[in-house]
Design a binder for these strands. Structure first.
Lengths: 205, 205
DNA sequence: ACGATATGAATGAATG
DNA sequence: CATTCATTCATATCGT
């Protein structure tokens, strides 16, 4: 029967996914200490709960969030943490994957014809000019907002090696970087810090 | 032989991932005159026909196609459609799986120190990189595609998953085996705690 | 009818 | 952002 052993904390619901993690190390990823036993099979892989997925999709489709910024990722993960263990990178990857797969599926399904502005996503694709003020995000963008869809290729896509910069520059809003890319504000910067408790988005379904 | 009756019918391919649950096997929909028990597995899961499989393997082994690009997938699926219902994703998954399983199988077949082919492996798949340099079809990929000996695994030989049981931060991957690029740009790693001047708030979980 | 195996599908994680 | 790898689930198929 339903070997449903979710360590997260959410009812089984109709989740038809694989949720396993017998880990006894429930202590939140700490992993490190805790049990002195063999630490094998910790599932390593984040297994989103139904609620988490639901919210993520909410954000994706209803709010048009596709590539959340570091700050957004933090907030999102913080909020999702209510429903189970989750880290910032999980949120990051989730959006990346979701977007990529959606695109990809479309790609080898009906690519030929040039795609117009066909949302096809089946949801609202709000394209709001976005408020750049990331610092004082506050309650500006809530509601719908989202990352504007900058579809249209042509993106420079350069980012590659820049690891050994060493020039500790404020990641905060490194807009003054080089000026090459507008929205290249650190693709994946530090979304694992989770410093202060930023007021989560008010909207709560 | 060929237990294939005549599947591949054009049923409302309500593919849509996810399955299980209220199996749609109900068939009906004209299943053959009503009472017929003949309800075909009209649903979930594409069941390739012999011809389709043959061609796929052809491409795989003879042409060295392992990870067809979107365009190739389209062409392939279009070609295979002659032999039965098929969608782009089916082709995509087929190659993904085939490659993955072959590698997986290979990992166990020749792991250890024994480098010799053991026929006893059972269903060991042929691993002969026969490069036929298909000269057919325009295509642009042929020619190259060789298997290029990238078989360098095995060495480590982990029995199952030896995921590190350390903290889920930092390291992460970084296997010690040589060969790969010394530099790796992990999305979060490195950045994760890039405490340049930020408050730095290490692991909390 | 099961149990085992083969394989399609899905997705988290990672790399380039 | 595109591609790829690894894992895991679900189911089809076959064997006993």
């Amino acid at each position: 029967m339903d070997p449903n052993h979710d360590q997260q904390n959410q009812l089984p619901s109709n989740d038809h996914h694989h949720q396993q993690e017998t880990s006894t190390k429930g202590s939140s990823g700490g992993g490190g200490g805790g049990s002195g036993f063999l630490c094998r099979q910790s599932s390593t892989r984040w297994t989103p709960t139904s609620d988490q997925i639901r919210i993520l999709k909410e954000l994706y489709y209803n709010n048009g969030v596709r590539s959340p910024s570091a700050e957004q990722i933090q907030r999102i993960s913080a909020r999702l943490r209510q429903y189970g263990k989750i880290e910032g990178k999980n949120v990051f990857y989730w959006f990346q994957n979701h977007k990529a797969r959606e695109r990809q599926k479309k790609r080898f399904t009906s690519d030929n014809i040039n795609m117009q502005r066909s949302p096809a996503a089946g949801a609202a694709a709000a394209l709001i000019p976005n408020v750049v003020s990331s610092g004082s995000s506050s309650a500006s963008m809530l509601g719908v907002n989202g990352q504007m869809g900058h579809y249209g290729y042509g993106a420079v896509t350069m980012e590659k090696t820049f690891r050994d910069c060493g020039s500790s520059e404020s990641i905060s809003h490194g807009f003054g970087w080089v000026g090459v890319d507008p929205y290249n504000s650190s693709p994946y910067a530090l979304f694992e810090k989770r410093s202060s408790n930023i007021p989560l988005d008010p909207y709560d379904q």
